[in-house]
Design a protein around this nucleic acid. Structure first.
Lengths: 230, 230
DNA sequence: TTTTGTGAAATGATTCACAGCC
DNA sequence: GGCTGTGAATCATTTCACAAAA
């Protein structure tokens, strides 16, 4: 309660870099993937129309999104693929390699460990951890499983900034607390629980059952509408 | 181009049932899970404040969300847990059992097949399919893997309405086309690709790499801000 | 007194439509 | 002539704040 009431970003110079809207941030990885795919086909240049369609969005939205990063297109021509890749990667902070620790090495954990998505760009699995002593020492995707007790050590030594939780629901909050305690401030949670975390920690949740239920809602609605109009 | 220009839901009676906003729909499964957890602890009644906190949202948002389904609370008291479960389940269409076909039985597919999240409530895996002939016949999570060629048959006979794609990226669009061809109109895609689908088909995408990149953005921003203020 | 349900206000996101530039 | 970048308009979502109900 010292200085002023500390609004968020209270002391950022003056509108230094306009904030990138959250909805835009969530789409940047999609654009990035589409651009990589285009690059592989040899395309060097792409219009907002073409890129938008590859990414499954409207072209106006795409242009507005990109405009938040800067002005990297050429009127009458389009965007240079490599240049856009560079700027989007930069905005996402993929210039540096982030170290990730994966906790919980069941089927899901193994799927994640084996998934190209990590090495892919910018991410590196620093360690696989599991609470089950019987599994410690097993090798998965070329890495030995280590004990959950080594968490602090791993986070410190490998400079881990992202934790991925792929444990059963019951264990997730405890693992989360330990991650936060070790200094991890970004967490990707695959366990079907809402994690309670202190301010400043960022959690993203991926939940199969949620997604199915959302699809269910829409199926249900379609079915109900069909009935009504019959 | 016969009748009028066919806006969406052009001929729904008159405001029959107010539309539930998409953002609300996406949160209903979270509330549902929190309610089930509360029920297990023996709670029979809960305030918007308590439920909101368990679900990780603000209480005003929760109340507004629930108000779209109806008026099921009691002022001065709160909500009856079981009653809310009933109404949310109803809104989500979980009254009926939806049949799901899972395509691609690698590590991820196995993780999904073994995940409680299906049987949990309302969903039933009708079949596991894989394109790899060598895997056909193997038993996973108590079910035999069948050939992808049986897709049409499975969808028809088991009345499948939801398809889950857990194949490598290269195969995803083809599998998607087959699902749509077989009549499936709701798809959950775990492959890292944007699927192209005709109107009326609903796709939800879950992508590890995307989520990591979004976290990366925020880490990057935190780091940059810290630097500036130093 | 407590806690819901909800108009009204504020904020955020998307879409439109076109001026500006190549 | 074609395509980007962006104000202005629209639409959606969140938050506020309080009257009404138990």
């Amino acid at each position: 309660m010292s200085a002023q009431a500390s609004g968020p970003a209270a002391d950022v110079p003056r509108a230094r870099r306009a904030e990138v809207p959250e909805a835009t941030v969530a789409r940047l990885p999609v654009y990035l993937r589409a651009l990589h795919a285009l690059a592989e086909t040899g395309r060097t240049t792409v219009s907002s129309e073409a890129l938008a369609s590859a990414a499954g969005v409207g072209s106006a939205k795409l242009r507005k999104d990109l405009s938040h990063l800067g002005s990297y297109g050429t009127r009458g021509v389009g965007y240079e693929v490599q240049e856009l890749v560079f700027h989007i990667s930069g905005a996402l902070g993929l210039g540096q390699r982030w170290s990730v620790v994966l906790v919980g090495v069941g089927h899901l954990g193994q799927a994640l460990a084996g998934y190209g998505g990590f090495d892919d760009r910018g991410f590196r699995i620093a360690a696989l951890l599991d609470a089950d002593a019987a599994r410690v020492g097993d090798v998965v995707a070329g890495m030995p499983i280590r004990s959950l007790d080594e968490l602090d050590e791993v986070v410190r030594e490998e400079d881990v900034s992202i934790g991925v939780i792929a444990t059963p629901a019951e264990a997730a909050q405890d693992v989360c607390d330990r991650l936060v305690g070790a200094g991890v401030r970004s967490i990707l949670n695959f366990a079907p629980t809402v994690l309670q975390v202190p301010d400043g920690v960022d959690v993203r949740r991926v939940d199969l059952s949620n997604e199915l239920q959302i699809l269910s809602f829409h199926e249900h609605r379609k079915a109900t509408l069909a009935e009504v109009s019959a």
